[in-house]
Structure formats: structure tokens, C-alpha cells
């Protein structure tokens, strides 16, 4: 894979929660770079700081110290309006619990995002990409968990983001359904070339990535390069 183009680069990220007596150091000086088109898995046990890292990379949280550079955006010091613009224009999110809008159909949930995007794909195309071309007009209540998560992936990628951030995307699913979801993520990464970061505590998932970052105690403990990405269908847990 090409390592020429850096999509996002973070340096010296620390994040301290709490003031006064009890201070929790969630991140203790993380340096990392995400390269264009790669699929990275951030692996670590709960409390390791991986979610904090994702939140900062996704523009949801500010580091206590350190910088995040995404093209012209310097996220470390950005205000709320600028972070919103960053998320809106460049980042796609997939949540553990899907977070679909229950009052909107699958197509409408995707349209919600394409309506505010500059260069979106058609919602039906995005849903077709994750294998839900037949369920366009179903409401979340009419979809299974896996289907809901795939709608969420379609929603995240429909605006053609530069980066797809997935926070425990299979955490609420059984393994069989989880694999379907991972297939959708992998397919998007492969076909659209979207830089993708997946957070998980499930080590098995690491083998579908280009790189696996092991996170422990607020630091990147080591980075593993997979010479060969395994297809999600080959995974089992």
C-alpha cells in the first residue's frame, strides 16, 4: 500500500479528565498518522484510551495538549463551529448502537446526511453498497440490528467522507451479523478508498486491517503491519 499521502496526523496528544483532586490521564502523548485509503484497527481493552483518541480524531473532543492536523484543519485549537464543519465535511461516523433516527426510514436516515453534504452519493446507492437496496423504505424499528448498523454505515459513507471512524461497530451484534457489518466497512474502504479507523476490543478484527494499533494506558503500545488483510468472512469469534 502507498504511504505517500497522510490524511491525518496527530502529535503529542494528551487528554486529562477531571480537575483538582482526581485526574485521569486518558491519553499520555500519542503520535500517529493515518494514510490515505488505509484501514486501521485501534485495539485495546476498555479504559485504554482508544475511544478518547477516536473522539479527538473525529472532532468531538479537544486534546489537553498536542495537535491534530487534517489537511488545512488544525483540530487542537479549533472552536465548536470549526469542529462541526470538520465533521460535516470530512468525517463519517459509525456508532456502537447505530444511533439511527427512529422517525426516518433507511433512505431518509441517509438523506439526512446527504442533504448537508457537498458531494454526496445518492442515498439509494449508498444503501445498495451495504446490501440494503431492498430495504430503502423500512423504519429502524423494522430492521434487525445488523441491518440498522449497515444503514448507519451507508449514512456515514454517503457523503463521501475523507475518513470513516467506527466505534465498536460490532459491539452490539452477534458474530455472524458483526461479520456482515465488517464486510460492509471493508467493502467501502476498498471500493471508495475511504481512510477508515475501527475501534474495537476484539483482537480478531485486527487481522482485517492494514495496520493494527495496540493501545494501552493512554499510549500506542505498538503498531502491527499486516502484510495481508484477511477478508471479514474469514474471521470468527
Amino acid at each position: 500500500m502507498s504511504q505517500a499521502n497522510v490524511t491525518l496526523e496527530a502529535q503529542g496528544l494528551t487528554r486529562v479528565y477531571g480537575t483538582g483532586g482526581v485526574q485521569v490521564h486518558a491519553l499520555r502523548g500519542v503520535d500517529l498518522a493515518l494514510y490515505e485509503g488505509e484501514l486501521v484497527v485501534l485495539l485495546g481493552p476498555s479504559g485504554s484510551g482508544k475511544s478518547t483518541l477516536l473522539n479527538i480524531l473525529g472532532g468531538l473532543d479537544q486534546p489537553t495538549a498536542g495537535t491534530v492536523q487534517f489537511r488545512e484543519h488544525t483540530l487542537g485549537r479549533a472552536g465548536d463551529a470549526e469542529l462541526t464543519r470538520y465533521r460535516r465535511e470530512h468525517v463519517g461516523f459509525v456508532f456502537q448502537f447505530y444511533n439511527l433516527i427512529p422517525s426516518l426510514t433507511a433512505r431518509e436516515n441517509v438523506a439526512l446526511v446527504t442533504e448537508i453534504a457537498d458531494n454526496p452519493m445518492d442515498p439509494a446507492t449508498a444503501l445498495g453498497l451495504v446490501g440494503l437496496g431492498e430495504r430503502l423504505d423500512s423504519f429502524p424499528a423494522q430492521l434487525s440490528g445488523g441491518e440498522q448498523q449497515r444503514v448507519a454505515i451507508a449514512r456515514a459513507i454517503a457523503k463521501q467522507p475523507d475518513m470513516l471512524l467506527c466505534d465498536e461497530p460490532t459491539g452490539a451484534l452477534d458474530s455472524e451479523t458483526g461479520i456482515l457489518v465488517l464486510e460492509a466497512i471493508e467493502q467501502v474502504n476498498r471500493e471508495l478508498g475511504t481512510t477508515t479507523a475501527v475501534i474495537t476490543h476484539n483482537t480478531v478484527i485486527g487481522s482485517m486491517a492494514d495496520r493494527v494499533m495496540h493501545i494501552a494506558n493512554g499510549l500506542i503500545a505498538n503498531i502491527e503491519h499486516n502484510s495481508q488483510r484477511r477478508a471479514p468472512s474469514e474471521l470468527a469469534w
Binding site: L60, T84, R87, F93, F95, N99, I101, L112, I116
Partner: peptide, 16 residues
């Protein structure tokens, strides 16, 4: 609140 926060994460502005 959760729905609205989700929309904020997805890049919706406060006004939206």
C-alpha cells in the same frame, strides 16, 4: 437528546 447529539456528531450545526 441522543438523537440530536447523534446529528451533532454527524456534522449538524447547533442551529440545525
Amino acid at each position: 437528546g441522543r438523537e440530536l447529539a447523534t446529528l451533532r456528531v454527524l456534522g449538524f450545526r447547533r442551529s440545525e
